[in-house]
Design a protein around this nucleic acid. Structure first.
Lengths: 255, 255
DNA sequence: GCATCCTAAATGGACCTACCATTGTACAAT
DNA sequence: ATTGTACAATGGTAGGTCCATTTAGGATGC
């Protein structure tokens, strides 16, 4: 793996590729600012002396990279976007899924990340954020105890808690990782939240964790987190041995 | 951020989107194995009762996600690929660039990862791997002292050391993360290795680190690593204030 | 004068046909 | 057996047509 020209060994399929790269370069170099509009497909078609299909293919690629947003109608067209972290996370999540990553590896990794974030979040998170975290944990608990909220809603709240937590570290890379892991393994989270025992336990643990973060006590926070992952490992083991099914088999990145 | 239908807020531009997602789902769920060939564009066109352009747009997106490879000619078509980590890294690097991510964030993240890996590597790495690591560190030192090896070669050796190190953790996620971060980092690594002082220091530190790993002493290993990152931060600060240029500005994701 | 409705233009979305370029295979010629 | 050639399959590109959506501006009615 010498990687001479470095980077993505994407087979250059010619024109569309070139155009996509040119536009991408223009965006990354700031020659086109977020919010600005690219020329219309037809204009670019004549500009590049090519077919409209080529331009469209290039646009689709850029759209999926999260670099542009395409609007229909008059005043429509391709608008340069601010790249959001989810887009960066999505491809990593894809990678994790396709490689059938062992849940235990993932748990180990996630636990490490959580521990790292803990220190940073306590040190750098604003008190408002810490209160928010605590409130959201209470919301989750309420939602679970009500029994009215659907599974999706619960998992969503759990996800938001994690994102909030990772944001407090004030380092976008941790956000990236956290989101990638969550996207890639939402099916696992779903499976776990189906278990009433886990559900009850998880929300309680979230509340306690949030409390210790609010109290700026990293040791106790980590203790909570560590306990959480012990339970999690156990549950995953149960699920796996019970069903024998691959919990990563159901769709999640495909809806 | 409610996101009911969950995930990547990609504006669903209709047909092409759907088809791309369907195929992606099929790939991720293993209904189509890597190496297998998708139907030809024309076949899919009739199957989905759609235009060929739609199929092509879907294919282009999948190609850029690294999920398929497209070959021309007879026996050509879309072949399912094994997703490589570079693809995940690419969008990550894109994100880092467009958001002008502070190199200090990357350093912070990398240091955290290194510390986590240290414990795992010492606990799980075989003695052979530990010896290999030490030998490779010596090789790097020799290469630097000879002065014969080019910059590229040195960075490459450094990279290999990191990979070797991360492999010892026996958790592929750490490997992938390490690779992704290295790719995102490559321009910085290059810049740093241009500095003779840093170069000399870095290789010495690698040797020492490898030694403590071989001695199974996590505390001293982490001490080495911590010191390494202190130097690294300082150098980055120097480079940044001296040149004023953004070290992520030079081409790397765009060609 | 204001609100409403209608129309026109711009634009992306989709479909179709045609042709070219590339590549592998089968078959003929040597 | 080797070589060369023709052919077929397939992606790559070009250009056109029509539709759906959206905005803006003008016409209409109150």
């Amino acid at each position: 793996m010498t990687q001479d020209s470095l980077f993505v060994p994407v087979q250059t399929g010619r024109a569309g590729e070139d155009i996509a790269l040119q536009i991408q370069a223009a965006i990354l170099e700031g020659r086109i600012e977020p919010g600005e509009k690219l020329p219309s497909e037809r204009d670019l078609q004549t500009f590049y002396k090519t077919g409209r299909g080529v331009i469209r293919e290039a646009f689709q690629v850029l759209k999926h990279k999260g670099l542009i947003e395409i609007r229909k109608g008059a005043k429509g067209g391709a608008y340069v976007k601010h790249l959001e972290v989810v887009f960066a996370s999505e491809s990593f999540a894809l990678f994790l899924r396709q490689n059938r990553t062992d849940p235990m590896h993932l748990i180990e990794f996630r636990e490490s990340i959580d521990h790292m974030i803990t220190d940073l979040a306590i040190a750098r998170g604003s008190s408002e954020e810490k209160r928010n975290l605590s409130e959201k944990a209470d919301q989750l608990a309420a939602a679970v105890n009500d029994g009215t909220a659907g599974l999706k809603k619960l998992v969503e709240l759990d996800r938001e808690l994690n994102i909030l937590f990772s944001k407090m570290a004030r380092n976008p890379i941790f956000e990236w990782i956290m989101q990638a892991v969550q996207i890639g393994f939402s099916s696992m989270d779903n499976a776990l939240y189906e278990d009433a025992e886990y559900r009850a336990y998880a929300v309680e643990n979230w509340q306690e964790t949030a409390m210790w973060i609010l109290a700026a006590d990293p040791v106790r926070t980590k203790s909570c987190i560590g306990y959480h992952y012990r339970i999690l490992r156990q549950k995953v083991k149960e699920i796996r041995s019970a069903s024998g099914t691959n919990i990563f088999a159901d769709g999640s990145a495909d809806g």
